[in-house]
Computed example of a mutant assay.
Amino acid sequence: MKRSLRLLASALALLLSGVAQATMGLGEIAATAKDGPVTLYYPSADAEQPTRRGPFVLQVAPQGQPVRGNGRLVVISHGSGGAPWVHADLARSLVQAGFVVAMPEHRADNYKDGSDPGPDSWTLRPAEVSRAIDAVGRDPRFAPLLALDKVGVYGMSAGGHTALSLAGGRWSPAGFKRHCEAHLEEDFQTCVGLLTRLTGGPLDGIRKWAALAVIRWRFGDDTPRVHADARVAAVVAGVPAAADFDMASLAAPPVPLGLVTAKQDRWLIPRFHSDRVLAACTPCERIADLPTAGHGALLSPPPPGLTGLIGDMLNDPPGFDRAATMPEVDRRITAFFAKHLLQERGARGAASAG
């Protein structure tokens, strides 16, 4: 057994050594009538240069020529109102290990259009991930470099909800309604997003009444939402929205499922979300548990200059050392995908070497 593990490690090292010096390319698959654009990070031989995207300056090779990596794709599902730039640090870790990374833009719940977040978006997102995999498979730049029979999915926040769906989770809008009826005050931001907050003042009663009225009007459908994609072979959910899931559907996921949790998360209170998943799913792996991190810890690089309610929800709390923490979290996520997406290939190489 020890010899087999050593051979496997050697084979993986050889596999990854060919991309260790690659730069990170940045590309895009254009939007269609049905879907938004898909942003791509990938191993490239071209030189990186400072490239501005929104408020961020990224070191990437824009439209760089792709080079062969490890042959595997990881899809990242962004959070509500999210952009592909806030996961560039994780993308770099994955690209350095040879992965191609694809980030679909989720309809009506992205940085350009935040008009319809929550259960309406959660219903659409898993199929958008599947169509992003299809789009990468049709792209002549990447199709020859990838085998799409084993794809990884990572999602954070609302993207974590997407990830849980692709790991076999079953949920319904009525489940969201029931959670908010039972725990509105304790988990208020989950139920209302950034529309308002409770202040402890005399208007809180009106805020809670109005929130429940809208939730009951919009989210009464108890039809289970399920989505299966046989190509998805490993999933990581970071600080996921999870209160509306039937936890029995996540007790024994059909694919390896890892979680990243943040104890100081005030947007998706852990005891209603990530902790419930971990309690229900005994085979799940807690990739990282961040005791001093808030909800925005997994946005890396973090959005600058956030103020007001969104700043309270996403800015790092006092005592959280981002520089010392997040590179290791990215390495652990990358290692999880390498273990579950590359192991069979590495084992075949080790057997050949033996």
Rank of each mutant, 00 (worst) to 15 (best):
G159W: 07
S352D: 15
R125S: 04
R3S: 15
P256Q: 06
A242R: 09
N110A: 07
S352Q: 15
I76R: 04
P37S: 08
L90Y: 06
L16D: 13
H161R: 02
V86L: 10
V235F: 02
F219K: 05
Q49H: 14
I269K: 06
V153L: 13
S274K: 04
V214Q: 02
G258N: 00
G98L: 01
L194Q: 09
T39Y: 04
Q96P: 07
P240V: 08
R92H: 09
P304N: 12
D275S: 13
D265E: 10
D244V: 00
Q189D: 10
A234V: 00
I29P: 00
A9D: 12
A13W: 14
F320M: 10
L12H: 11
G308S: 07
P140I: 09
D120W: 00
A233R: 04
D139N: 11
P66T: 10
F245Y: 05
T123I: 07
Q59Y: 03
V101C: 11
A335R: 07
A347D: 13
V38M: 10
V95G: 08
C284K: 05
A233P: 03
T196V: 14
V129G: 04
S352W: 15
R331N: 15
L298I: 01
E28W: 00
S44C: 01
G294M: 10
P66K: 10
R331K: 15
P126Y: 05
A248D: 13
Q96N: 14
A324K: 06
L58Y: 01
F245R: 07
A9G: 12
I269W: 01
V255S: 02
L290G: 12
A47P: 07
L5D: 11
I206Y: 12
P256D: 05
T282D: 15
H161V: 03
A174F: 09
P224V: 05
C281M: 04
P224H: 11
T292E: 07
V329M: 06
A234F: 01
V60S: 11
M156D: 11
D116Q: 10
Q65N: 12
P254R: 03
V239I: 09
T223Y: 11
D229E: 11
W171F: 04
L148W: 04
V67S: 00
F337M: 04
L198W: 11
V57D: 13
